[in-house]
Amino acid sequence: MRKSTNQKAWWLVAPVLLLVAFNAFIPLMTVVNYSLQETFGDNVFFWEGLTWFEQVLRSERFHASLMRQLLFTSMILAIEVPLGIAVALSMPRKGPWVSVCLVLMALPLLIPWNVVGAMWNIFALPDIGLLGYSLNSMGFDYNFTQQPVSAWMTTVVMDVWHWTSLIVLLCYAGLCSIPDAYYQAARIDGASGWAVFRYIQLPKMKRVLTIAILLRFMDSFMIYTEPFVLTGGGPGNTTTFLSIDLVKIALGQFDLGPAAAMSLIYFLVVLLICWVFYTLMMRNEAQ
């Protein structure tokens, strides 16, 4: 659409700006202030300079939770994206089952995040949960509160359960926008299933898939509630991701300085990813 230049449009944006800025700037300024000081409570602060940043950047603990975070994010992307595409491809295009499928698939997305965690916690309890009991009676030694591997698997499967539908829905919407004529042309040309996928379906899904992958990347990067309720970051620290670690430092130990410094580093990383996302998306849109 051709847009006309109109500086007065700022007035229409002003209320949004005020509300979001209130929520975004004041906390951000507070965090920057804390990150350079030390406090023992009572609103008394001591100047610390860049000590906290240096400490966080060099701490084993931060590196470990960052690594866990990256590993977790890449694992869920590697599972959710292919699975989501496969399910979207095999869903019916028309008929009464479409609505049923869509509603059932969207269901996990609307469950409060702590309920997701609690549900999986119950589901996976080794002696009384459906999953835990079945796995153990099949002869697997499974106990997610004690074995790091089981805890990891459960967290990853939970995220797959929770969010794959997002990728399915987006891909499905992309697929539905392909006119039937394309498929007929492909059939006349005798194109193989793979060729149809590679040259017709994948290009049409590209835009929504970019959005889906980057949304998943960012949401999984700030995941907190579900793993916290499911495993509490344990056993030990094996499922302590960035946000969980951050909350532990800030609210658990009340180390405001290091927590603030960590927040800012975390925020810069998120900002970089956002920018890459936005640039990619706008480029897609321009094409």
Binding site: M1, K3, S4, T5, N6, Q7, K8, A9, W10, V13, V16, L17, V20, N23, A24, I26, P27, L28, T30, V31, M218, F221, M222, Y224, L242, S243, I244, L246, V247, A250, L251, L256, A259, S263, Y266, F267, V270, L271, I273, C274, W275, F277, Y278
Partner: peptide, 28 residues
């Protein structure tokens, strides 16, 4: 509908808030 000074940056800034980890903001 309109183009105005800083519109794209404003839009991007809004997006960053959608992506900001709530854990960062909890205490402030």
């Amino acid at each position: 509908r309109y183009r105005f000074l800083g519109d794209k940056h404003l839009f991007f800034w809004l997006l960053t808030n959608r992506m900001a980890p709530p854990a960062v903001f909890a205490l402030p």
